[in-house]
Amino acid sequence: MSNQTSECAIRIRDLVFHRGDRLILDHVSMDIPRGSIVAIMGPSGVGKTTILRLITGQLVPDHGVVEVNGQPVSSMSRKSLQQFRKGIGILLQNGALFTDLTVFENVATPLREHSTLPEPLIRRLVMLKLHAVGLGGTEELMPDQLSGGMARRVALARAVVMDPGLMLYDEPMSGLDPIAVSTIGRLMRETNDALGLTSVVVTHNVRQMSKLADYCYILADARIAGEGPPGELLDSKNPAVNQFMKGQVDGPIHFHFDAEPGGWNLLQ
């Protein structure tokens, strides 16, 4: 058991979560091994982002535990939660750059907030991260002067500027052109391996993830429909997994909201 905790960066056990009357997660368990890139995939609105928010402690589960490095997140005090979040890097949907700050100040924000480093050192660290994402020279621009892919890369630089042990990505590829998608994918792999991170990626981009991820979980109807390395999942016999991986319209996963109430009632 102790062996298992040290290997797993994140352990999720029996997670149940409701939003209002709607069941979002129904006894979901996951193990995310240290040093790997794990993808959580599934159709839109299935509760993938909810899992991220449960990992960061922004939401509290109705039942079950989320343990990060052996510590249960939901029982952390406000202070230790703050401390815990300093060790996580997060790339949110659309990047969420601070629009009133320059690129440089965006990346420097976590350092200024959580460290007392002298200005020249902050400057060096920020420029190092900006160069790492291939955006040296953009530091004086404002976020609205960047393209979508560049903004995403700045957000990535900001997420890793504190050298976190855990990276969480929420739809890192959505809304980007194919070149930007590959760039972000390569950067994710590089940062993960170079910094020895554990990465959790929430996405519905099957093609990219089958190239990038070490391990995948597929969520459907509030449960884990399938899990395994992406290669195995592609050949899965499970109809739901098969439908999702191949992007078929017909199958056990209902894509129409109207079709759902019957299904939800059955689950409850």
Binding site: T56, Q58, Q82, Q83, R85, K86, I88, I90, L92, A96, F98, T109, P110, E113, H114
Partner: peptide, 8 residues
């Protein structure tokens, strides 16, 4: 959200 997640 991003701020909250940066412990700000």
């Amino acid at each position: 959200d991003a701020m909250e997640l940066m412990a700000i």
